[in-house]
Design a protein around this nucleic acid. Structure first.
Lengths: 299, 299
DNA sequence: CCAGATTTGCAACAAATGAATCCTACTGAT
DNA sequence: ATCAGTAGGATTCATTTGTTGCAAATCTGG
């Protein structure tokens, strides 16, 4: 993040991209950082950027020279100029832009979807929503095990939540229908566990039934759903509401995923240093398996 | 610490104006400079600002303390934050909220994540991004079949794209590693097909290799990735960039899902009435199977 | 496998930064 | 006229900054 954005145009992006392939690995990570967070380049000291990029300070200087500039100060002046000119500005304008300049057809739809999503997600920062998120995170944190359930359109969010927490340990269990075994694993859930369940209209019967089953067994149910009066909301002990309306004729699941990610982050945050250690352990394991392409440094 | 939603410029403007009359002359010139050039406050060193304002450096420090802050570094951090968020206006409202009403700990993190996501997604409405989305949609629409690939953290987005389009017919094929069969199905892809592939840092080796394989066979590759210089971007014929930065220590996949949804909507839109008919057909089938709860369900 | 070139990290450096201190100049009330 | 009390400037100090030199590590071609 930071900010940074979908297409963070830095003044040097062109040069960087062009030279990138011929750059040695460390310089690539530095270059990459500059591409990813142009506002940092303008606002932070060089050493601080080096710290965040995970390279020694010298690398930043070397990169600057490699790009044909005098030193890193020159780089920063360039990016500062872009900030002043508003070239770096991400969105914001976009919202206005969409309404002002008449976009037509496909582009208009895409732009409308993007701005709609943006608003819906921004709504999650409202105090009421924050309270619900914090409460839910607390429930999930206290649970011995968290069962994750989401079918059909809600599968992506539930699965992703499970995936994120699985990086920190084996606290979560994904409930899915693979192999026709149904959602049997929910039978193991007890009072000390919790069920994270996502469902939006039209509510999948299997989802609701599983949630009901869990609730009857006094398993705390954390529901991600689309309405205060959804069948899930009535079962659940915690409910988080997400918007699903969209300019297209599909429902959107993006706010749902956003909530899933925020919840996962909060739960992980409660884990504190232990969670971080677990994450590093996982990463080390993955690295040992060669799952990922080599990345010349961490962070 | 009052905050009215949308001050035109600096985050301290209100405090400054309020205190201005009671300020000694030299501090006033310093204060005026801060009011006039908020950009400089964020981008220049304190001494440099003092130089330009025509006051000794000490004055700037004194002004900062006079405003109730620790020192001038604090001032600059504030203005830097405003540049990151404020210059763009729009969802920044919530961001201001975070700073204004002292949110602490968990809620603050949640709020920051939400606003960051909101901004990252809003960035998708920028013209450059819209172009890329439209081009990619065109590619996918023309393809006979669309193979969808995303492993690990990118699985959710790839799967959801597949799911959405699967509601409209069987044009898409999901490539996953289930059952250890690997990504073999990609072998069936040909020139007339397309591969939609998502991968962000750290790039999963299998994903990149599969994409490379496809590209070598002249299968058009539409890449959803996080950087212009990601290994995917170099392979792909179409690239769409998404932000993954997040205040939490996880990468966020929400913008990725947003792109997936927008793409699916665009592709569906190109299908026109036929797509809609297919959707209704699917829904009828699902209803026949009793997959969903009856719609009128409340209370 | 090795020589040669390149890349990389560390330590050192001078220059700058932001803040603290000291001291003079000024104010206004008595 | 005196004398607090503040303002403002210069000086100083401990940090931090951006850069460079050098040696170890790494890669490359023969």
């Amino acid at each position: 993040m930071e900010n940074r954005g979908m297409e963070p145009k830095g003044p040097l992006n062109a040069s960087i991209v062009e030279a990138f392939d011929l750059l040695p690995p460390q310089l690539q990570t530095a270059a990459r950082y500059m591409l990813d967070r142009p506002d940092d380049v303008a606002l932070l000291s060089m050493r601080e950027q080096a710290r965040r990029a995970g390279v020694p300070p010298a690398t930043m200087t070397r990169l600057a020279k490699r790009l044909g500039l005098d030193g890193y100060d020159t780089v920063r002046e360039l990016y500062a100029g872009a900030v002043r000119a508003g070239t770096l500005g991400f969105a914001g304008k976009a919202g206005v832009q969409v309404e002002a300049q008449a976009l037509h057809g496909e582009r208009a739809l895409a732009a409308e979807m993007a701005t709609a999503l943006s608003r819906q997600i921004a709504a999650l920062a409202e105090p009421a929503a924050l309270d619900r998120l914090a409460d839910a995170a607390s429930r999930l944190h206290e649970a011995r095990r968290v069962y994750c359930l989401g079918l059909r359109s809600c599968h992506a969010a539930a699965w992703h939540f499970h995936y994120m927490l699985s990086l920190l340990g084996d606290k979560t269990v994904m409930l899915d229908d693979a192999g026709g075994t149904g959602l049997d694993a929910i039978r193991d859930a007890g009072k000390a566990d919790a069920l994270l369940v996502a469902s939006v209209e039209p509510y999948a019967r299997a989802t609701i039934e599983a949630a009901r089953y869990a609730a009857e067994r006094d398993v705390p149910v954390v529901a991600l759903t689309d309405s205060e009066v959804s069948p899930l909301a009535q079962i659940a002990s915690n409910t988080i509401l997400v918007a699903t309306a969209s300019p297209s004729f599909f429902h959107t699941m993006t706010p749902l995923l956003a909530v899933a990610e925020i919840l996962a982050a909060l739960v992980a945050g409660r884990g504190g240093a232990k969670a971080l250690a677990a994450l590093e352990h996982t990463e080390a394991q993955l690295a040992a398996f060669g799952v990922h392409l080599p990345r010349r440094n961490g962070r």
